[in-house]
Each structure stands twice: as structure tokens, then as C-alpha cells.
């Protein structure tokens, strides 16, 4: 209970720190929101009036908390470039990025756990070694290059999808999902390779420990030793890794969206940075950061459930 409270406290502090950081960062940008709204040719008097109106003359922390408050209630300001509310811009894109992220994450789990189990069980077989080496190679391919390779091989050579032929979820959900399969694959494969490697090394090192011998001495079969004893220990670092991976995938999808021309948060973020559309940039970064922190909280809690040594005292 105390531990959970502590985690929750950490979570809140990190959210505050991170949002404060985002807020400060965008406060530092030369030229304030009033200038951005009125243009650089506005008279100083008009600017002053605008500042007053926008609440920019209030003390720093007042401005921060009012920003944070309205942010949480969905008021994220108005886009400089499009003049529409940031909230409506983000809302329509959220399902796209979220679907891509989740698909990629499911692929990582589905690919890495069976392969990791297989290659630790039959570590001497040729196939396990092939997995090792190809995993190492795949890990070194930058995600955007892997995206390009996937586009070229599956899209242009094998015609399994049409590069650039993204269909939005509200038009045709089936086509939307089938288009996202390949981008998700491009995100997932290197991460799956890493998690396979980690699961394998973790199982192998756990198998050397004394408690495994104890388990055998009680008449457990090899299978039971693996599933009832070794795996319960070996998954702990893998779970952490998967949590970090989920956070990484959120960020990695930004790049992959660019490669596959998917109009999600990533493309919006990049174009907004290019257009200096700060309210949009600020909102996206704050949202992603909060998703990431939330995932970290989940990982921490899972960790404590799995490892009794971390519970309590």
C-alpha cells in the first residue's frame, strides 16, 4: 500500500516536472503568443492589450497552472497555422497513432516470446543460432530505413500494399488496419529482436542458478522447471523492457508515420515544428510524454507484482 502510494506520488511529480519542462521550454521561445497572434507588425499598444487579454502578464506559476488545468480539461489552445482548436486537430488523429502503436506492440510480444523460448530451449541448434545472428543484424537497421525496405519489398516488389495509399479509419476500417500492418511490422521487428535476445539471455542465466537444481531435485520435469520456476524469474527484466519498448514505440511511430505517409501525430508534429505552430507542438509533446510516464508507472507496478523482493519495506 505504502509502495503504491509512493509510486503514485512519483507519477504525479514526474508529470508536474515534465509538463513544467514543456511549459518553460515554450515560454523561452523568442516572440510570445501575442506576437504570434497579431503578427510582427502589430503596435506595442495592441500587443500589450493582447497580452493582458491572454493572461500573459500574470506571474509565472499562475500561468503554468492555468495552462496545466486547461490542458487537462481539453483546452489546448488554438493552432497558429490553421486557426482551429488544437484539441479537434489531435482528436481525429489520436486513433491512428494509437492503433499503429498497439499493433506494433502486439507484434513485438507475439514474435519475441515464442522465439525467445524456442532459442533458449534449443540453444545449440542451428536454427537458434540463425535467429541470434539475424536478430543482431535486424537490431542495427534504423527504423526509418527498415520502413523504406519494407515499402520497397512488400509494397513495390510484392504489391502487398500500396505505398502512400493510407485510408482513414472512418472511411474503411478494414483497409485502415491492413495498411498499418506493414508500418507496424517495421516498428516491431527490431524491438522484437531485442526482446527475444533479452528473454533468451535472461532464461539462460536464470537456468544456471541454484534454485533450478533444487526444483529438479524435487522431481519437476524440464517443462515444469521452465514454466513454474525459471520463467517466473526470467520474465521480470523482459517485462521492464517491454514497458520501455512501448514507450519507445510511441516515439518510434513518429518517424515511421513519416516514411509511410500516415497522417498521425508524427506527421502533424513534424509539420508543426516546421511551421512554428507552437500550441500544436506543445500539446503533442505533453500528451506523448504523459503517455510514456503512465506506461512507466504501469511497468513499475507490474514489476512489484512480479518480484516479491521489491514489495514493501
Amino acid at each position: 500500500m505504502k509502495a503504491v502510494l509512493k509510486k503514485l506520488l512519483t507519477f504525479i511529480i514526474t508529470v508536474l516536472l515534465v509538463t513544467l519542462f514543456v511549459f518553460v521550454a515554450f515560454e523561452m521561445i523568442p516572440g510570445d503568443a501575442a506576437t504570434a497572434r497579431l503578427g510582427i507588425n502589430a503596435t506595442p499598444e495592441a500587443l500589450e492589450k493582447m497580452r493582458e487579454e491572454m493572461g500573459l502578464t500574470r506571474p509565472f506559476f499562475v500561468r503554468y497552472f492555468s495552462w496545466l488545468g486547461s490542458f487537462f480539461f481539453g483546452d489546448m489552445g488554438v493552432s497558429y497555422s490553421y486557426g482551429v482548436s488544437v484539441r479537434s486537430m489531435l482528436a481525429s488523429k489520436l486513433p491512428i497513432t494509437l492503433t499503429l502503436t498497439l499493433m506494433a506492440f502486439i507484434m513485438v510480444v507475439v514474435l519475441s516470446i515464442p522465439i525467445g523460448l524456442y532459442s533458449s530451449k534449443y540453444e545449440d541448434r542451428v536454427f537458434a543460432k540463425v535467429i541470434d545472428v539475424s536478430g543482431q543484424l535486424v537490431m542495427s537497421i534504423p527504423p526509418f530505413f527498415l520502413g523504406i525496405l519494407v515499402t520497397y519489398v512488400f509494397g513495390m516488389l510484392l504489391h502487398m500494399f500500396t505505398p502512400g495509399g493510407f485510408v482513414s479509419y472512418d472511411i474503411n476500417f478494414g483497409k485502415f488496419i491492413s495498411y498499418l500492418i506493414f508500418p507496424a511490422l517495421a516498428i516491431a521487428v527490431p524491438k522484437a529482436a531485442m526482446s527475444t535476445k533479452l528473454l533468451k539471455t535472461s532464461i539462460l542465466s536464470e537456468r544456471r542458478l541454484d534454485y533450478v537444481r533444487t526444483a529438479y531435485s524435487r522431481g519437476n520435469s524440464t517443462m515444469d522447471v521452465l514454466y513454474k520456476h525459471v520463467l517466473k524469474n526470467a520474465v521480470i527484466p523482459v517485462i521492464t523492457f517491454l514497458g520501455m519498448t512501448l514507450a519507445d514505440i510511441v516515439a518510434g511511430s513518429l518517424v515511421i508515420e513519416q516514411v509511410f505517409s500516415i497522417p498521425g501525430y508524427g506527421r502533424l508534429l513534424i509539420s508543426s515544428i516546421a511551421n512554428r505552430d507552437y500550441p500544436v507542438v506543445q500539446a503533442i509533446i505533453a500528451i506523448i510524454a504523459m503517455i510514456v510516464i503512465f506506461i512507466n508507472l504501469l511497468v513499475d507496478v507490474t514489476y512489484q507484482v512480479l518480484d516479491p523482493r521489491l514489495r514493501g519495506n
Partner: peptide, 19 residues
Amino acid sequence: NDAVLAFPSILLALVFISL
């Protein structure tokens, strides 16, 4: 440090670049 590391690095890089 933890707060900074909680950000995916590419995201932080984007923040810096936009600044």
C-alpha cells in the same frame, strides 16, 4: 534525470530543435 529519461530521446530532440 529520471524525468528527462522518461522522455523518448527522439521526442526530446524534437523539443530542443523546435526551440
